[in-house]
Design a protein around this nucleic acid. Structure first.
Lengths: 338, 338
DNA sequence: TTGTAAGCGTTATCAC
DNA sequence: GTGATAACGCTTACAA
């Protein structure tokens, strides 16, 4: 023990009477080691409380034990769910989770990402939507030798590099559910442009309508931006229509809840006068009144798997699932139209 | 340039015709360097696109360029706000943000924290409440030589190691506001035990009542756990009272919104029949109807300053503010009692 | 199965 | 001011 500091691999080697390489083999669980040597060294490691220096390993191995989540200021609940999933994925390993926001509208966006990757050299990165659909960023990962997994709503890459939900089918099911209840005038509040998920959700909406032989009334399709306020605004427009809808599908929960507020202000009862369906299944959806019927989005599962894909071999990553089904959660905001 | 890989300090030294130590001096902005040498080296660094290897620096300097936020699953919005603040604080620096959750109820809690600190060796950690009031964890930071800043609602440490809000005064002001409106039967929904902030908020409540010469009716003080559901449950009890309150102060927004839902279910109008005040000023508080009068909690500012304290010298940290005033935000959930 | 020597890319020491 | 040389703690050849 070199006096003050923490014990190093040299201290362990000396105390165990072996070479540092042997200790290294024990740390790395090398298979070619006699059981007796291993036990002896493990005993010394325990006694000394030796913890391998990750920075030194990072230097020698040329890879940092860090998984980074790269995002562009998404919804708080989404971000926290992703973090939770990644934490589950790296639990029990040496990896740590780093979180790094970027601003896509910044002209220096790409160079900022590059600077981050070159500085921190994370072992792998999870790309959150909408950054996940940015091919330039993916190219940057390849160029810097950073492993990556893209989170999204379609299979935008090979299985080893994607975790995806099936938003299109899920929304189709949700809207079909509304149609099954007897709704015919169904409105859609869309998500922001530049994201993939709103496109998929819209496609699912249109498919459900088409399957039921219903036309999509352009007046019942309102833009939105995944924010509460945009949900309020969209619903206000819809309620002001000469023939307002009997049901609204909002492309996410926040807008759905915005729509609920707008209805309440307008004196329109939910679900008696209008049914509402959201997407995400955030905690909030069961906290509003009436509780919100919504599509459960398995973000935590997706993020956990993303982390596992990053830590394992390329082959192993390809074996892990890339598609995570979203399912309709029926609550209190949907009934048959009056 | 050693063939494939990225340029190293050696490549820069060779290309500039100086020693690696001189390059190191340039990187570290050493003052004792001739201007001509500095410019020459900086030019080469730019030309080669040299980025210092943080892992190597971490090994040599024995400190990792990472700030870690350590928490025990707090509210999503709170966590995201803290992250945002820390990101603001480290913006423009080489530091990265790592996020690490722990479970205080796990018997291995302390050893898990120790393992994290010894493995990742973050340069500094921001301790989020309620972990911030755990002296054992603080001791662990000292022992492992990890710089730390505690986030909380009281000055639980020296200025260099604390950022705090003034919950007590803020709540006193908020409740005084209710009293000023004419309320006399004011209920309190408390936060969970084991946290400091609920104690402070309760103290502020009691001080306001005492200052106004009002007695605190024990029947109007209900336990809560900072969750939506606990807010619902507490409000249900309050509304069932023979003499229900005319106003409720909930110790956080989530419970306040739970209380709002409970009132609505019970047919009690807000604010006509009952006024409600929350604490936090989460985005949600302006998204409900009526909008929630609440206390703004300057988490982002606190977290930004925490990061700055960690990165600067101990002295500089002590100079930075440790107290961040919370202020009442008047919205639509408070009126004079009927 | 185990050990030796040479890096990994940077900074600290101490000369010049 | 600047430069050899030795750390920092670990891993990967390559031997033995």
């Amino acid at each position: 023990m070199n006096g003050a500091g923490k014990p190093t691999i040299n201290d362990v080697a000396a105390a165990a009477g072996v070479s540092k390489k042997t200790v290294s083999r024990v740390i790395n669980k090398s298979p070619l080691l006699s059981a007796s040597t291993r036990e002896k060294v493990e005993g010394v490691i325990r006694d000394l409380g030796f913890v391998p220096n990750l920075q030194a390993r990072a230097l020698a191995l040329r890879r940092n034990f860090i998984i980074a989540a790269i995002h562009d200021n998404p919804n708080a609940q989404f971000l926290v769910n992703v973090q939770q999933g990644i934490q589950q994925g790296i639990a029990g390993s040496e990896f740590g989770l780093m979180v790094q926001p970027f601003d896509r509208s910044d002209p220096a966006f790409e160079s900022e990402v590059r600077a981050f990757l070159e500085r921190q050299r994370p072992f792998g990165v999870v790309l959150l939507p909408p950054i996940s659909s940015d091919e330039a960023i993916v190219a940057l990962c390849r160029e810097t030798g950073t492993r990556y997994v893209r989170m999204g709503s379609i299979k935008m890459d090979e299985a080893a590099h994607v975790v995806s939900s099936n938003d299109r089918e899920a929304v189709r099911d949700a809207v079909t559910h509304l149609i099954g209840k007897g709704h015919r005038r169904i409105a859609l509040i869309e998500g922001p442009e530049g994201f993939t998920s709103p496109q998929e959700r819209r496609a699912g909406f249109e498919e459900a309508m088409a399957q039921a032989g219903l036309a999509v009334d352009p007046a019942l399709v309102r833009p939105g931006s995944y924010t509460f306020e945009s949900g309020v605004a969209a619903a206000e427009c819809l309620l002001a229509l000469a023939a307002p809808p009997t049901a609204i599908f909002a492309s996410n929960d926040e807008m759905a809840i915005g729509a609920m507020i707008a209805c309440r202000r307008a004196g329109v009862r939910i679900p008696e006068d209008i049914s509402i369906v959201g997407f995400d299944d955030t905690p909030l959806s069961s906290h509003v009144w009436p509780t919100l019927t919504t599509v459960h989005w398995p973000i935590v599962d997706m993020a956990r798997t993303a982390a596992q894909k990053l830590m394992g071999s390329e082959d192993a990553a390809g074996e892990l699932p890339w598609m995570f089904p979203s399912t309709l959660v029926e609550r209190g905001s949907v009934v048959a139209p009056a």
